Simulated scan of single mutants.
Amino acid sequence: MTETAQHAAHEAIDKYPTSLRVLHWLRALLIFGLIAVGWTMTSLDDEMAEKFGELYPLHKSFGLLVLLIVLVQLGIRALSRLPGPADLPAHERVLSQVVHVAIYALLLIVPLMGYAMSSTFAHSDGVTFFGLHVPELLPKNDTAFRVFQLLHKVLAYTLLGLVVLHVAGALKHRFVDKNPKADVLSRMI
């Protein structure tokens, strides 16, 4: 490889690939929608037909869609050239990396806990993905259901907290920091 080719291969790119940017924003919209629907459906009276007839199935379907999007994103990330680390102080770079890894982990774990919760609940009709039945891999067990329910709830709120931190960090780097190379938001828009 010539020196020019090596330089071009190592040259930093400014933005994430278009596919990752589109999936990032789609996933963000879906997560905020899932949180809103989750709050709404859990606050409704169990006698309301819409709660179990519409809201729960939609929440489950969109939760599985987020899981699939994250798996696709991880595949694309593994095969793509990505921007290098932002020009941030070391402690902010470490915090950013920890938050990103935790968000990705929770984007996998929270839907899986929701699936496990639905699968183990004795009175559940199971999980559907926009009308298609998803096989239940776990036996009905109300004790396990309560554990998965608690994990789904606590981890969803943890994910929400990390997303708020992620957004706050991106806005800080965009509007507060004096270094334009710290503007991580420009890489994702």
Rank of each mutant, 00 (worst) to 15 (best):
R21S: 07
A5Q: 12
S119P: 02
S19Y: 05
V164G: 07
D142R: 06
D177I: 05
D125T: 12
L162E: 14
E50T: 08
A8Q: 11
A170V: 01
S124R: 12
V22S: 06
T143E: 15
G33W: 03
I189W: 12
V22N: 08
N141G: 03
L58H: 03
A170W: 01
G75Y: 05
K172I: 03
A105Q: 02
L150H: 07
R187F: 09
R146Y: 05
R21Y: 11
K140D: 10
L132A: 15
N141A: 03
V99G: 10
D87I: 06
I189H: 12
V37F: 01
I31R: 00
R187L: 08
L67T: 09
T4Q: 08
S186N: 04
T128L: 12
P57D: 12
G161L: 02
A28S: 09
H152L: 05
M117F: 02
V184K: 12
F175H: 00
D177F: 03
F52V: 10
K140Q: 08
K51F: 03
V167P: 12
H24Q: 14
G75K: 06
L162Y: 04
M113P: 04
L71P: 08
L112S: 09
E11W: 07
L65A: 11
G126V: 09
T128I: 05
L74S: 00
A102M: 06
F121Y: 15
L150D: 06
L160C: 02
I103N: 14
L79H: 07
V99Q: 13
A156N: 01
V147N: 08
A105T: 03
R93A: 12
K60V: 14
E3K: 07
A28R: 06
F175Y: 07
G63Y: 00
A9V: 00
F52E: 13
G131C: 02
N179P: 10
D125F: 11
G38R: 00
G84S: 05
H123W: 09
Y16D: 09
S61C: 02
A49H: 13
E47H: 09
L95Q: 02
R146S: 15
L165M: 11
D14C: 14
A122D: 14
E11M: 08
L44W: 00
A105P: 01
F52G: 11
L79S: 15
A78L: 08
P180K: 00
D46Q: 09
T42V: 09
A49P: 07
P57T: 04
A86C: 06
L30G: 12
L29N: 11
H7C: 08
S124E: 12
H152V: 00
E50V: 07
F62V: 02
W39H: 11
E47I: 05
V164Q: 03
F52C: 10
R77S: 08
E92C: 10
Y157K: 12
F148N: 10
Q97R: 13
Y56H: 00
E3L: 12
L132K: 15
V164Y: 01
G114P: 06
V164K: 01
D142P: 00
L30D: 06
D46A: 14
V134E: 11
E136W: 01
S119C: 02
T4G: 02
V164C: 04
E136L: 02
F148R: 13
P83R: 07
L162P: 01
V70Y: 09
P135I: 01
G75A: 07
H100N: 13
M48A: 14
L155M: 13
M188Q: 10
